[in-house]
Every structure is written in C-alpha cells, then in structure tokens.
C-alpha cells in the first residue's frame, strides 16, 4: 500500500513540478498583461512575441557578445523594454482615443511582424541555450525524484519578481501614482503628473517583464520564434480566469493553473492542453468577472 503510494508520487511529482515551472511563466506573463491593461486599456497581443524576443536577445548576447546568462537576465529586459517604449510612443499612443479593440488589433499585427522577422532570420527550429553550470548546486535529488536546479531557480526568480512588482505598485510613491492614474487619469494629470510618460514607462515595464520571462525560459525550452505564440493564448485564458483587477490575483492564478495543468498531465494526459480552457469556461459560468475581478 505504502509502496504503491510512493510509486504514484514518483510518477506525479515531476509533472507537478513541471506544472509549477509553467505556472511561473503564466504568472510573469499575466502580471505584465495586467499592468499594461490597467494603465493603457490595451491587451498586449505582442506579449508572447516580446517574451520570445527576450529569449532571443539572451541567445544573441551570449553568441555574439559573449555576455553570459546573468548579464542577459538584466540586459535583455532593458533592451526589449526599450523596444516596447519605442512601440508605445510611435504607435500605441495614437490609439488611446479610439476603441480599445484597435489596440488589440495593432499589437496582433506587431506580433505577426516580430515572429515573422525572427522566423526569417533564425528559421523555425530552435536554438540551444545552456543554463549556467552553477545551478547544479540547486539540484534536488531526493528519494522520489530528481529536479534540475535551474527549474528551482525559475520558480524562485518568478516569485521574487512578482513580489517585487507587487511591492513597487502597492508600497511606493510611483506605485501610488500608477494606481491613481489607472483609476482617474485626468485627475492625476491635473495634479501635474505626466500621465502620458507614465503610460509609456508602464508599457516598457510590462514588456520588460515578458522579456525577463523569456530569458528565464531560454534554457528550458529551445529558443524558437513560435515559443511565445504557444504561451500567450493560454495566458489569455489565465487572465480571463483571474480577472485583471489585482496583481496578487494574476500571480496566484498563474501558479495555480500551472499546477492544475501538471496534475492533469498525471491524471488524464489528453486533457492537459485543454484543462485551462475548461476551467475558464467554468469560471465564466459561475463568476463572469473572474476570480479576482471587480465586476
């Protein structure tokens, strides 16, 4: 009996951990989407493409400039974030007065352009990116399973960044401005705060979060142009489930759904790809505004 249970655990644990790693990416990506949406009222369809850019920039930094993983973890979000700032200034800023759906259409077009350019430049097959050997120190090798240290790091890094984002938004002055501008931009502007610039920087920060997730993902998944598109639709479902009202909501929903996906892979593998969407349907039926949404 006990042995049986241990065997079951042995089978399940890696999948659950894998789910947690996926959840780390869902959390980071949906956090970025929620921040951008809160401030700009734009759903950033290019989020997946910018995630992919983060991974590619990390690969380029290593292959062309010899800058290792730790450098990339800082530089790639800055580079891709700067790219986001340019995009916001030149294109998205023109659409604020229009229907929000135009923002979705614009960023969808951007996603197509970015993915197409990378596919032309690097082909559709993936490029390898090795994690630094230092992570082997984090390897978990216990009776029921072996867990590569890098995956432990991904979960920790994601949690840390989510926590830091939450602290900035809830506990600092900039965060207070941001929350105020999300509620009543005109009023905040009237107090002499440069709201358009805040919007630009918010978009840049959200994009940087996506790129950070991309660098984290580079050693796990092969660096390829489609890696973002595969993620982003699931992340949209995560966002619908969690509602975009709260930061903690995004984080909890992201990790939770990653775990559920991992469990589904153990219990009923055929459903693992669709379980998030099924949950979305159930949430829509019972709480249309999302678990953490505000009406």
């Amino acid at each position: 009996m006990i042995e049986n249970l241990l065997f079951e655990l042995e089978m399940a644990a890696p999948q659950v951990i894998l789910g947690l790693v996926n959840g780390a990416f869902y959390a980071l990506l949906s956090l970025g989407l929620a921040i951008i949406f809160g401030m700009l009222n734009v759903i950033n369809f290019a989020h997946g493409a910018q995630f992919m850019m983060g991974a590619f920039v990390a690969w380029m930094l290593l292959a062309w400039a010899g800058i290792p993983y730790w450098g990339a973890l800082v530089l790639a979000p800055l580079i891709v974030g700067a790219f986001g700032v340019v995009i916001e200034r030149t294109m998205i800023a023109r659409l604020y007065k229009l229907d929000h759906l135009y923002g979705l259409l614009l960023t969808f077009g951007l996603a197509l352009i970015i993915e197409g350019v990378f596919r032309n430049a690097f082909g559709a097959s993936g490029l390898p990116y090795a994690p630094p050997a230092a992570f082997n120190a984090l390897n978990v090798d216990i009776a029921i399973m072996f867990l590569p240290g890098y995956r432990v790091w991904v979960v920790i890094a994601s949690l840390l960044v989510c926590l830091a984002t939450w602290l900035v938004i809830e506990k600092t002055k900039i965060g207070a401005y941001l929350r105020a501008a999300t509620e009543r931009p005109e009023l905040v502007q009237a107090f002499g705060i440069n709201v358009p610039r805040m919007m630009t920087l918010t978009y840049g920060a959200g994009v940087a979060l996506a790129a950070f997730a991309g660098v984290l993902a580079a050693p796990i998944y092969s660096v390829n142009p489609a890696m973002g598109a595969n993620f982003i639709i699931t992340v949209f479902a995560v966002v619908v489930i969690g509602g975009m009202g709260s930061i903690m909501g995004s984080v909890v929903t992201g990790f939770g759904l990653g775990l559920i996906e991992g469990l589904a892979r153990v219990v009923y593998p055929e459903a693992s790809a669709t379980v998030v969407f099924v949950i979305m349907a159930i949430v829509l039926l019972t709480r249309p505004a999302g678990l953490f949404g505000r009406g």
């Binding site: 294109m91 077009g109 951007l110 197509l112 352009i113 970015i114 197409g116 350019v117 032309n120």
Partner: peptide, 15 residues
Amino acid sequence: WVTVIQGVIFVACVL
C-alpha cells in the same frame, strides 16, 4: 515574409 507583410498591413490599417 507573408506573415510579416500581413502584420504590416494590420498595423497600417489600424494606424
């Protein structure tokens, strides 16, 4: 490149 061109048309139409 077809994807890229479609994306460009998207952006151009919206803007």
